[in-house]
Every structure is written in C-alpha cells, then in structure tokens.
Simulated scan of single mutants.
Amino acid sequence: MADRFDEIGTLFLQRRKELGLTQEQLGEKVGVTKSEISKIENGRGITFSTINKLSEALGVSAHVELKPKDSVSSDVIHYIVMSLGLFARKYKLTKKEACNYLSRFKGLDFSIRNYEAEHQLSLQECVEDMAAICQRNGGAVS
C-alpha cells in the first residue's frame, strides 16, 4: 500500500477511472462533494474514515500496517560512515553527494541489510558491492 497521501489519492483516482466513474458520481456514493473527491485524489483531506469509505465505494480493500522501526546499532553506523567516506574518496564526491547517491540507488540500504556479511569483507570490497548495487539500480558513478 502507498505510504504517502498523494500516492493514496492517485490509487483512488486510478480505481475511479477504471470503474468509469466521475468525481461527482463517486462523491454521491460516499456522501461528499466533487471538490472533496478532487482534494482526496490530490492527497489532501485523507483520513482513515475517508480511506474506508472510498475503498468500500470503489470495491477495493485497504489495510494499514504498523511495524516498529528497525534500529541500527552503533557498529553498523560506524561501518556505514567508514564505507561512505571511502566511497566518496574513490569516486571523487563529497560525503553529501556520496550519501545522496547511495541513498537514491539503494547502496546504503544494501549495506545495512547485509551488514553481517559485508562487514567481514574489506571496506574496498564493500565499496565495490555498493557501487555494483547502485549500478543495477540505475546509478552511473564511475
């Protein structure tokens, strides 16, 4: 399920169009105005109650998942900072640029998720792994 309100609104918009409904018709089904449907489809005014009403009217189910945030140990943080610095040096980037690049192309996610295996490698190998993951995800640093 989408986790941002504008994405949720877009999902409702797509479903409404699949069913061939106008905003006015959908509004009548759920008891709101056309302008309220427009706001919802643009990610504004969305509440759990609204999600439930629209889901029922559009014949879809919605669920909310609450899960605890993953905590990252100080060992992992230290390892990532070291890897990030080496990555930045290798590719002649600032640390901020390297961090943005690795975040965008999932290199940091990979290193954090695979810390148990990656930290047993050299930092050079970790940097190579992060670069490979980023390239697979559309990154083009060289």
Results as ranks from 00 to 15, higher is better:
M1N: 12
D3F: 07
D3R: 09
F5H: 05
F5A: 02
I8R: 01
G9L: 03
G9Y: 04
T10G: 05
F12K: 05
F12D: 03
Q14G: 02
Q14F: 01
Q14D: 10
K17A: 11
G20A: 04
T22L: 05
T22C: 05
Q23L: 04
E24R: 15
E24F: 14
L26F: 09
L26M: 09
L26S: 08
E28K: 08
K29A: 01
T33S: 14
T33A: 07
T33C: 09
K34Q: 15
S35N: 13
E36C: 05
E36I: 05
E36T: 15
I37F: 00
S38W: 13
N42K: 10
G43H: 11
G45I: 03
G45Q: 06
G45H: 03
I46Y: 05
T47A: 01
T47Y: 01
F48C: 07
F48D: 09
S49P: 10
S49V: 14
S49Q: 13
S49M: 07
T50A: 03
T50G: 00
T50Q: 01
T50H: 00
I51T: 13
I51S: 13
N52E: 10
K53V: 04
K53S: 15
K53F: 06
L54K: 01
L58W: 00
L58A: 11
V60Q: 08
V60G: 08
V60R: 08
H63E: 15
V64F: 15
V64A: 10
P68C: 00
K69N: 09
K69A: 11
K69T: 06
D70W: 06
S71L: 12
S74H: 07
V76T: 12
I77Q: 14
I77T: 11
H78A: 14
H78W: 08
I80L: 10
V81Y: 08
M82S: 12
M82L: 15
M82W: 10
G85C: 10
G85H: 11
L86I: 09
A88F: 01
A88R: 04
R89P: 04
K90F: 01
K90Q: 13
Y91E: 02
Y91Q: 01
Y91C: 05
Y91A: 02
Y91T: 04
L93A: 03
L93G: 07
T94R: 13
T94E: 04
K95H: 13
K96L: 02
A98S: 04
C99Y: 08
C99W: 02
C99L: 14
L108F: 12
L108W: 12
F110R: 04
F110I: 00
F110E: 08
S111Q: 11
S111C: 11
S111A: 15
I112A: 09
N114L: 11
N114R: 10
Y115E: 08
E118T: 07
H119T: 07
Q120Y: 05
L121C: 06
L121S: 06
S122N: 06
S122H: 04
L123G: 08
L123C: 09
Q124H: 13
Q124E: 14
Q124Y: 11
Q124V: 15
Q124I: 14
Q124A: 14
E125S: 12
C126A: 13
V127E: 10
E128C: 03
E128K: 13
D129V: 04
A131P: 01
A131F: 00
A132G: 06
A132E: 14
R136L: 11
R136V: 06
N137Q: 15
N137G: 10
N137A: 00
A140W: 07
V141N: 02
